[in-house]
Design a protein around this nucleic acid. Structure first.
Length: 848
RNA sequence: GGGCGAUUAGCUCAGUGGUAGAGCACUCGCUUCACACGCGAGGGGUCACUGGUUCGAACCCAGUAUCGCCCA
């Protein structure tokens, strides 16, 4: 077949053309008729669509795509779906601002609702949850389009018929079904318990969403009078406003200073509440005065003490972060009640100011507060310190409270193939450090509702321990808008009626089901049987503790197996100054702008140069190199194909041609091995190294022979070898540079290069088998020596050489001699002689 | 405070016991019939530091420093 070659090949604008062809031809369509062992399935990370496009996305998604393309060429049909994470707070907040609405779950659905024309953020229109969710879906569709356009342009080989949203009906149904099955098996349970609570968002916060922030604080030294007289006991606290919530004082059991006090009682200053002095190993003798007050609750240590020492609960902080209005029942003295009333209804901050003033006046506080800096727990998206309040919440077992499950989950972590392997440690550390089960309920609106109702007793109180579950066929349900079977909507909130669970699930409770959602669990069992357990979970390392871990938990509980066999953990993009690339900087360089400027293949080349799990600098220079490579592939291919070569292995007779193909076979072998181990970077590097030596040396050496300078058979050998090498190299580069390889492939081959078989050493067969790779290396040395002579003489490479003497080991000389005519032609050498020596190969060149 | 990773040429990075590598940048050349978005040649390193193991260490061990990330 004769190749159709462009005069001036270019990579500019080729993306658009091939994106269209791939879509029309269904090049990347998943073949769902193939059995599980012929499928390679990928649990694609659903990007947060309300977040902005960032070069980090381009980086990590390219890695996955390279693997997907490799596996496809290895003969698998690749299940490569795309999900959109439109769940959670970021979307909720965007919708509030964008439409000027707020969610009011008590309202009924209004099918005719239209958002205000001029949104007023200060006067948001209350709407039902269902209306709110509809607006969320409406807005996220726009965001998804921007992502899809970028992904296509980047050349991701996603099957665009397989998409999902984490808030769509299927995802909601899957989340609810999985939750109900957890409930059936006793893995989901509700508990009234101290919960980390964000007072701004008024929602419970899970361990995985916490972060510590350094904040200024101050130790207040405060005396607690002893009930049986004697000197007061001095504690130091950063939170004096919690004195009304004090339930005990605690010191280390070995602390001799306080041992005499254990078993006695003291009274809280101002409030006169009698509390015991107790011993616990967690009390730090070095901290403050060595004796601390336990409040319900000031921090997580308080919770531990409270639980292990079985202390009473005396909460004073409400869901809004303010002290309760009413004087707590345990404050019995009139003076205490007066003192409390000075704090009631205030925020923790104001209450602290008030109590410090009172303590100072009453002489209960010694000296001035001593300023310190300490770590305070925050919701990662919040701006005020977390409080701990007692609420009724839903939990899911995750090994945080049971050694047996924890052991099983650690076992799962060991079963998983991690790329790179050291990432497993992060999983282990996280699982070993869990201190409670997974809190899955959230007091938010946009999310998957907890699919439960509770009956109301004759007094109208919910009976929480007898939840009403929906029928599986009714999923997904919205308990705030729909009545359970057997009830009608009129009974909502009425004694003897029902009430819906007002909460939604944690966003991870849905994301953790991404294999189930994308793979058709409980919806399309045929599909599910072909894709699960999946092969690959690609993701970033900072969400090992959240997304990866929670997905393992759900799969372990539901299927008693890992959700995938391999996890490929990508690194970060760093600024050139080695700092994690900031959002603002990342947004200055827009991904689409990069693709426009350098070309998709070039940007992919840069991304693929970041090894799995390794943080990589944002480096435009690397993109330029990628661009140069892509252009070189075009030009070299055009040159080779201009010979109208036939890739006939039997024509390859010249030793140099065979040696070159042997070298290529070795490259293929190593690249395949690297790719199988998810080391795409190494595979690219190998292909690239071969390619440059192919164009710089081999092509130059055989050029004249290919033109017919040594006869027809010699020319046929050169041309056939060039064609075979080009064919193989295009396939080696195809996973990395999908556009340019497809472009060249289209010049002379049928079909898409991306549906060809990945090259193997076997296909190069006997031609390569008896080729001697050392010939390539020896000739490169000799050619380089000739070039050096010309370069030093500052003459053109076309300058004639009257005489060249190759000195070196007899073996090398013999190998060079097999291609003597090629060397003479490439070096324009009139007379070539050989001398045997013990040293390395040298060439004495005499210019004409 | 604990864990993980990194530290190699001006820059970005390969290199897991046997003479320090690539690309970029730099210098000097070359209109060469695929490519000047090109080609050729060259200079450039105490492999963070200190000890140890070894015939031999960038590589293995111990420690130190700096940077990054995760967790407390």
């Amino acid at each position: 077949m004769s190749a159709r070659l462009p005069d001036k090949p270019t990579i500019d604008g080729i993306e658009q053309r091939w994106v269209e062809v791939w879509e029309e031809s269904g090049t990347y369509r998943f073949d769902r008729t193939r059995p599980r062992d012929e499928v390679y399935s990928i649990d694609t990370p659903p990007p947060t669509v309300s977040g902005s496009l960032h070069v980090g996305h381009v980086f990590s998604y390219t890695h996955t795509d390279c693997i997907a393309r490799f596996k496809r060429m290895r003969g698998y049909t690749v299940f490569y779906p795309m999900g959109w994470d439109d769940n959670g707070l970021p979307t909720e907040r965007r919708v509030q601002n964008y439409f000027g609405v707020r969610c009011e779950p008590s309202l009924h659905y209004d099918p005719d609702f239209t958002p205000p024309e001029k949104p007023d953020p200060k006067n948001q229109v209350p709407i039902s949850r269902r209306n709110f969710v509809e607006l969320c879906e409406q807005l996220t569709v726009e965001d998804e389009k921007a992502f899809e356009e970028l992904w296509r342009r980047l050349g991701l080989s996603i099957d665009w018929t397989q998409t999902y949203q984490t808030i769509d009906a299927n995802a909601r149904a899957v989340s609810q079904r999985a939750f109900l099955r957890n409930l059936d098996r006793g893995e989901a349970y509700q508990a009234e318990a101290p919960t980390l609570w964000d007072v701004t968002f008024r929602t419970a916060v899970a361990q995985a969403e916490l972060e510590d922030r350094e904040r200024p604080g101050a130790y207040h030294r405060i005396g607690f009078p002893r009930s049986n007289g004697g000197d007061p006991v001095f504690i130091e606290t950063t939170r004096p406003e919690l004195i009304p919530a004090c339930v005990a004082l605690v010191a280390h059991p070995d602390d001799e200073r306080y041992q005499p006090l254990f078993g006695t009682t003291v009274r809280s200053p101002l409030f006169g509440v009698e509390v015991p002095v107790v011993a616990h190993a967690l009390a730090d003798p070095e901290k403050g005065s060595g004796i601390a007050m336990i409040c319900t609750f000031g921090d997580l240590t308080d919770v531990t003490w409270w639980r292990e020492l079985q202390l009473p609960t005396r909460p004073i902080i409400g869901w809004d972060g303010r002290l309760t209005q009413e004087t707590p029942a345990w404050i019995e003295t009139e003076a205490g009640a007066t003192a409390y009333s000075a704090m009631a209804g205030k925020t923790a901050f104001s209450a602290k100011e008030a109590i410090v003033e009172m303590l100072r006046e009453g002489g209960d506080m010694v000296g001035e507060p001593r300023e310190i800096t300490h770590a305070v727990k925050f919701f990662e998206k919040g701006e005020r310190p977390l409080e701990i309040v007692t609420t009724r919440q839903w939990y899911l077992t995750n090994g945080g409270r049971g050694a047996e499950l924890r052991g099983q989950l650690l076992e799962r972590g060991a079963e998983l193939h991690w790329h790179p392997s050291h990432m497993k440690v992060r999983y282990d550390n996280w699982v070993e450090g869990l201190n409670g089960d997974w809190l899955v309920s959230r007091q938010r609106f946009f999310g998957v509702p907890i699919p439960l109702w509770y009956p109301l007793d004759s007094d109208g109180n919910p009976v929480y321990d007898r939840p009403i579950t929906p029928d599986d066929a009714d999923l997904p349900v919205d308990p705030s808008a729909e009545a359970p079977r057997g009830y009608d909507e009129g009974q909502r909130g009425k004694p003897g009626g029902f009430v819906g669970d007002p909460d939604v699930m944690d966003t991870w409770a849905t994301s953790s089901l991404s294999p189930q959602i994308a793979g058709g669990w409980s919806r399309d069992e045929d599909l599910w049987s072909r894709v699960f357990p999946m092969d690959l979970r690609p993701q970033a390392h900072e969400i090992i503790r959240t997304w990866l871990f929670s997905t393992v938990v759900r799969s372990h509980l539901e299927f008693d197996r890992l959700p995938w066999s391999d996890a490929a953990i990508s690194g970060w993009i760093l600024d050139p100054d080695r700092k994690k690339m900031s959002k603002s900087k990342g947004n200055v360089v827009t991904p689409m702008g990069l693709l426009d400027e350098h070309g998709s293949d070039a940007v992919r080349y840069w991304a693929a140069s970041g090894r799995p799990g390794t943080d990589t600098a944002f480096d435009v220079g690397q993109m330029k190199i990628g661009r140069r490579l892509a252009i070189k592939i075009l030009n070299a291919s055009k040159f080779v194909l201009a010979f109208d070569p036939v890739a006939d292995a039997s024509a390859v007779t010249a030793p140099l041609d065979r040696a070159m193909l042997a070298e290529l076979a070795e490259t293929v072998r190593q690249a395949t091995e690297a790719f199988e181990q998810y080391n795409y970077t190494r595979a690219l590097e190998l292909a690239e190294t071969f390619f440059w030596s192919f164009t710089d040396d081999h092509v130059e050496l055989v050029k004249e022979r290919a033109y017919g300078g040594q006869g027809d058979d010699a020319a046929a050998s050169a041309k056939a070898a060039l064609a075979i090498a080009l064919d193989v190299q295009l396939r080696l580069f195809a996973p990395f540079l999908p556009f340019v390889t497809e472009e060249v492939w289209s010049w002379w081959q049928e079909g898409s290069v991306h549906l060809q078989t990945w090259p193997s050493a076997d296909e190069l067969g006997t031609v390569a088998a008896d080729g001697d790779r050392r010939t390539v290396a020896d000739l490169a040395v000799a050619l380089s020596a000739v070039r050096k002579a010309k370069s030093e003489a500052k003459v053109s490479m076309r300058a004639d050489v009257s005489d060249a003497v190759v000195r070196g080991p007899a073996e090398s000389a013999a190998r060079i001699q097999t291609a003597a005519a090629d060397l003479c032609a490439a070096g324009r050498i009139a007379e070539l002689r050989f001398e045997s020596t013990d040293g390395p190969i040298e060439v004495a060149v005499t210019l004409a």
